[in-house]
Amino acid sequence: MLNVGAARSAPAYRDGRACCKLLPVNDVRPAQVAPRKAYRHRLPTRLWHWANAVTVFVMIGSGLMISNAHPHLYWGVYGANLDTSWFNPPTFPGWLTIPSSYNLALARRWHLLFALVLAFNLLWFMIASLVNRHFARDLRVRAAELKPAALGRDVREHLRFRFHDAAHPERFNLAQKIAYCVALFVLLPLMIATGLSLSPGWNAGAPWLLDLFGGRQSARSIHFIACWAVVAFVVVHLVAVILAGWRQEIGAMLTGWLRVPEGEGH
């Protein structure tokens, strides 16, 4: 359908709109030589993103130190040294942990303070994103995106490391939407809920949460597994940022404006 050369000069895009839409004369700004810019990230998204980036970093580092305190995972309501563990995580080295030398007390102080930041930062961001329609406009998967032809095009574009819809560079592609939705609506809430299940105070306040995960040691195991899913998300996210052009991507998350790289959309 498309060869690479054609894709470079006049690609067809996933919303199926005609290529003529891509002609520079249709751009918002008439200046044809200036690089195109698209407003991609609103202020609440940018504030949440950077606060969350720092928070997730601290949570993983301090969490690995907490794991070092008792590197055995169990299923069920109880579990201690004399019980059968299903997995014994390795001792994480000092260059991966917060603090860098063994200190459970300080790791907990980092972890439990930033847990509050994680949860309340996510809470206000979710409210803001419902109000400003960020979720509805930018993360909602449209039926057209799920048509086989659109899916195939999305996969091919990804294989070429082309992540932006040149007609609408501010839009997220399908894989992005799915990844962000899983992180926002599944992984981070799961981290928070399993984390709360480890609190004896919250076990009294919300015993149903403990039952939901099948007991405290199960909740602890799920907390650990979900943490690695967050790590996987972060790795894929950072690789995608680099492949998509880290200057433009980080610039967009700082200023809101995505400068569309030359050769995309022209």
Partner: peptide
């Protein structure tokens, strides 16, 4: 580099007081 920066943060008095405030915040919230 960022991780070892956390070591320096926790050795810095005012930052350490913020870090330690989590105890009272958790108590108050619960």
């Amino acid at each position: 580099t960022l991780l070892s920066a956390c070591d320096r943060v926790q050795d810095f008095g005012p930052a350490r007081r913020i870090l330690d405030s989590g105890d009272a915040i958790s108590h108050g919230l619960q």
